[in-house]
Design a protein around this nucleic acid. Structure first.
Lengths: 114, 114
DNA sequence: ATGAAGAGCAACTATTTAGTTGCATTTTAT
DNA sequence: ATAAAATGCAACTAAATAGTTGCTCTTCAT
């Protein structure tokens, strides 16, 4: 049977790429617009921005490569929608980090008081 | 009275910079080590890595600028420790995005079924 | 059938980033 | 007093990123 679980390094890289995808103000705005639920065309997502359509397209590709959004062609426009899974993964990961941190602090405190 | 609240754009930029700081596998490993609670020197954080001390230093500076870690000089070494607040902020933000998404889906579904 | 809307592709520039090497400075231990 | 350890600083390179412009292709509406 093949190994279903990706290596630790691969997981790290994947996670990093999702974080990196969110590491840009423009992309966060796009994300905000898409969190409304309705898939939106590139032209629509470009409205209200000072950027070119092509610039927005590039940002969308970054988000898509990270798996944060996906696109589907509908007629002459391609509609982008949010993909909640990777974001959920990040949430869990940050929960984990916070938990570890709290536990560590509790342990250190207990150690000092002993 | 001065305006305590930062502009929306500034908030976005700050958040983006924190995401960006986490958008690198090396920095995520550093973070993992620091989530153990104990402040660690640069030399210590470099151990086990294939990188130079200076490379690690740069990564630490990125994390520090984003507010994710802080450093304090102790004798000849400078010890880095995690700063949980920004991570907590990201958690909340991702919670918010997920919530919006879920709500939107619920609304869309309700609309379809009506 | 034809013009306009929406998007894709390619080439190019400028800036940022990740990494290196080399050398100077501070602190500790002998 | 001096050598080793830990760090800081500066200059440099290579690659990635954000953005642009220009052109082509497909699809829709008239």
């Amino acid at each position: 049977m093949s190994d279903k679980r990706p290596s630790k390094l691969a997981t790290l890289q994947t996670r990093a790429s999702v974080f990196a995808a969110l590491g840009d103000a423009t992309r966060l705005s796009v994300l905000a617009r898409l969190s409304g639920g309705e898939p939106q065309s590139i032209a629509r997502l470009t409205e209200g921005t000072r950027l070119t359509r092509q610039a927005v397209t590039k940002h969308l590709k970054v988000l898509e490569n990270a798996g944060v959004v996906h696109s589907a062609r509908v007629g002459r426009e391609s509609r982008f929608a949010l993909d909640p899974q990777p974001i959920e993964d990040l949430r869990r990961y940050l929960d984990e980090v916070s938990r570890q941190w709290d536990d560590a602090l509790a342990r250190l405190k207990a150690h000092v008081e002993t």
